[in-house]
Design a protein around this nucleic acid. Sequence first.
DNA 1: TCGGCTTCCTAACGAACGTTCGATACCCTG
DNA 2: CAGGGTATCGAACGTTCGTTAGGAAGCCGA
Lengths: 230, 230
Amino acid sequence: MTSPPPPGRREAIIQTATVLFARDGYAAVGMRSIAAAVGIRASSLYHHFPSKVDLLHAVCEVATAAFISAQLPELERPGSPAERLGHVLREHVLYFHEHRLEETVGRRELAALQQQAPALFDEIQATRRGYQRALQDVIEAGVAAGEFDVEDANLATLALLGLVNSVNTWFQEDGPDSIEAVADAFVAMGVGRLLAGPLAASPTVPSAAAAAAAGPVSRSRPARGRGSPA
Amino acid sequence: MTSPPPPGRREAIIQTATVLFARDGYAAVGMRSIAAAVGIRASSLYHHFPSKVDLLHAVCEVATAAFISAQLPELERPGSPAERLGHVLREHVLYFHEHRLEETVGRRELAALQQQAPALFDEIQATRRGYQRALQDVIEAGVAAGEFDVEDANLATLALLGLVNSVNTWFQEDGPDSIEAVADAFVAMGVGRLLAGPLAASPTVPSAAAAAAAGPVSRSRPARGRGSPA
DNA sequence: TCGGCTTCCTAACGAACGTTCGATACCCTG
DNA sequence: CAGGGTATCGAACGTTCGTTAGGAAGCCGA
């Protein structure tokens, strides 16, 4: 009765669960719903994951690992701190948009994982902190190089992450701007202005941010409105 | 058996539900848990709210109304656009911290409300958009007055909201800075730098942001680390 | 004192929950 | 062709879910 051996059943389950968790929330999605969307029965899920919370962990772990392994190499590129930071933050925005379902789960349901499986949560949290730490290192390098004027590198890192992470809460595909244009604009605001303060004139913030700022951002004043955070 | 007439039963239920929803999520909290925390039985809840989703709506509505009625008057104060914007954003950060449980629910569970009761969701969403619109008006006034150098006021508004809203995701009471210091720092970064670009020298960004920037922000480099977003 | 209103109760409804069990069909190795 | 492993199934477990029904206790105005 089981005609095909599973090509990537485990991965298919994770992918399906990601979509459902992102849409309805972890607690509101039943094992039977996930199984039905995959095309099997609920009991069969337990041959791939020992429990529901382990499935959530797998979803979060895969999402985190994919993000980190995509982003960290971008920080190793050559260039000034401002160029490297601008580049990685631009990729950050684009990645968060492309994988917005995974990141929605990773954000909204990490609390559930923390309560129900603290060990699994800590492991994921440590990975994310590594990324934050790497960003802060680049900022501090930029300060040392005179490119940035930052009082508190840790606060500046958190501000930048707040900036780029917020895009997913309001961006809509059919809005006035492409995600690339938004990414460019946010990098220009974050790196070109927030980090390089009024003290730094244009020459000290070179190509990356400058090019982004000159990019195709909302040429004609957009038709009002992109959605709302609060 | 019911000794006291309820002094503010309805309000007590909303408050209790807020705490539980914020901690465990709407879907993971049962009516029996809420009732037990209030000190009554689950069926008694239905004399105050017709259903669970109406209770969620009440939580979100009260939280939204309180936030808006606290913040909008702050925008009516006298002063330059930069002063008014800096002040309201500072209060925004402080309010979000003080009422972080309500805002957690308002943020995390608004999606659940949207799916299960679109009409109630729209009503709340409209209120929040009014706040965003009011912020954008002040930014545009600042551009007209030459205080701000902003390409796209809508994008700048969203960037500022992303900035201030993100504080709640990592701030911890026992961290290196007080919430007031963080609010000052974020206002300085957001208004003093992000909006007032490299073109604007110090004189065009007057007292509010400047005073905030000079505020007591992390005098001795903080002992590394405040938590992690992603 | 009476009747109604409000508030809470106990009890129960059917449905859905996460999970376990034992059996069955397929596949690969010997 | 035998045998073990893998993946799935149907059925059922005890529990919890949101919600409803009907009744009892207190209050208040008539």
